[in-house]
Design a protein around this nucleic acid. Structure first.
Length: 426
RNA sequence: GGAGAGUUGGCAGAGUGGUCGAUUGCACUAGUCUUGAAAACUAGCGUACCGAGAGGUACCGAGAGUUCGAAUCUCUCACUCUCCGCCA
């Protein structure tokens, strides 16, 4: 959420920037400013009443010590009055604060100046295209047929055990998956990220901290008996490490990485979007998270994009980098780059990474601050990105590297897989 | 699942219903001393909000209650630890 002081001081600019998302926030912003003014005046009134009550209470104590019970009892009557007045203001205060928070939760982050206008993914800005589009001397087969024919992933078996969207990886399919995880983690470590194995289940406070709650409650699997949520991404536990934390400036930047399975309830659409490995309820991902000083955050964003594109280069995939337009930009993000790989069997682009700078939006809710020397604490900037999401990488690798006799494994993975290709049985 | 103990500032750890937002120690910051450092000594040292400032208000796990007044008493909840049981 945004800070009210920021909203007040930058009212016009804020409204102007939010039009990039296709929303007119004028009314909401003005309500927020009005409510915050009301909050301030209410608090001033309440504080002076409480100050008076505190004073009377102290006097009563002193009177009793002096044995002046009559005067003390007279003072008690006076105290009763101010107590009643205070409770009225207290209720008013709570209700103003509540309405204010409700509005603040609904106001999305301010898009960075470089975010293009637009309503949907069709308006995203193409930043760059890399590698070469694979070409085939035969009709390439989509991955869902390849993995089925060659026993790499069994979707029906997943349905039997759990349900749709929970695939079972088999044999070399499983080993390829595990190899990719190890490759991504090693690369992240080489890039200076500390490896973490976090809990894959989080409590309510963590869900609120990163903004999955209260709005996107339906996207997470919830275990009602213990009131715990299965993580939709390692971003949740990783970022919540810093909830209610004040770091020293010299501790920044914090760079963390973690592998985790990710669980998403999201009711998918139908057809080719969700076919095979394209969209799942459970999938694997390696995530990177950074906490940095505000003046360094766009530098950090660039370095994260470079890290992710480096991975795609090493895997020899044909991919493109997009800058998300206002309409496609996530609620909490100020600037997001998406990486999409070309899927040779499906003939389409697949999103495999999303790298975002949240500036102080996430830190404000998390109360993640840092301190320069002996200054007052101030909000840090947070960033995260997928590096990378496994299933679609797997899909692209299998489709793009298929031959008539097998699937070639990129050289960089050989030391992890222990095999150079998956041969088709004759 | 059963029984018990606990939750106070970065950490440790006091706190009889009334100058307690909180003793003290460690850590940390500055100063004195020293060629420098250590030691010693002196001072400072939680967070948020309101206020131009002086200053005020709130917070002792969370919430409610009793009281003129609650870290302290009562209730509810959460969490942690110990022992037992079960189990990888």
């Amino acid at each position: 959420m945004l800070q009210t002081t920021y909203i007040k001081e930058n009212r016009a600019e804020l409204i102007e920037r939010l039009t990039v998302r296709g929303i007119d926030a004028t009314e909401m912003v003005d309500q927020i400013i009005e409510l915050d003014d009301k909050r301030k005046s209410t608090q001033a009134d309440l504080d002076s009443i409480l100050a008076e009550s505190n004073l009377i209470a102290k006097e009563i104590g002193a009177l009793y010590k002096q044995g002046k019970a009559d005067e003390a009892n007279a003072a008690k009557a006076k105290a009763g009055e101010s107590k009643e007045a205070a409770s009225g203001y207290q209720e008013a205060m709570a209700s103003v604060q509540e309405s204010l928070n409700q509005l603040l939760y609904q106001l999305p982050n301010v898009p960075h100046l470089s975010v293009p206008n637009g309503n949907s993914d069709a308006d995203n800005e193409l930043v760059s295209v890399h590698g070469t589009k694979p070409s085939f001397a035969f009709a390439p087969v989509p991955h869902w047929d390849l993995v089925k024919t060659h026993n790499l992933v069994d979707f029906e078996l997943g349905v039997k055990i759990t349900g749709a969207g929970f695939p079972v990886y088999l044999g070399k399919g499983a080993r390829l998956q595990r190899s990719l995880i190890n490759f991504f983690l090693d690369e992240a470590r080489d890039a200076g990220y500390t490896e973490i194995i976090p809990p894959f289940v989080v409590n309510e406070a963590s869900g609120f901290g990163t903004g999955q709650l209260p709005d996107k409650e339906g996207q997470m699997y919830h275990m009602a008996e213990d009131n715990l949520y299965m993580i939709p991404t390692a971003e949740v536990p990783l970022t919540n490490i810093f909830r209610d934390v004040i770091l020293k400036e010299e501790e920044l930047p914090k760079k963390l990485t973690a592998y985790s399975p990710c669980f998403r309830r999201e009711a998918g659409s139908y057809g080719k979007d969700v076919k095979g490995l394209n969209r799942l309820h459970q999938f694997d991902k390696v995530e990177v998270v950074q906490v940095v000083a505000p003046e360094k955050s766009y530098e950090a964003l660039d370095s994260m994009v470079a890290h992710v594109t480096g991975l795609l280069d090493k895997l020899g995939l044909h991919y493109r980098v997009l800058r998300l337009c206002g309409g496609d930009l996530g609620f909490t993000s100020a600037l997001t780059y998406d990486m999409e790989v070309w899927s040779g069997g499906q003939g389409r682009w697949l999103e495999v990474s999303s790298v975002s700078n949240f500036e102080t939006f996430q830190a404000n809710r998390l109360k993640l601050r840092y301190r320069k020397g002996t200054d007052k604490p101030q909000l840090a900037h947070t960033l995260n990105g997928s590096a990378l999401a496994l299933p679609r990488i797997m899909a692209a690798l299998i489709e793009n590297n298929q031959t008539e006799t097998g699937i070639n494994i990129p050289e960089v993975l050989h030391q992890y897989t222990g095999f150079k290709s998956i041969e088709f049985d004759a």
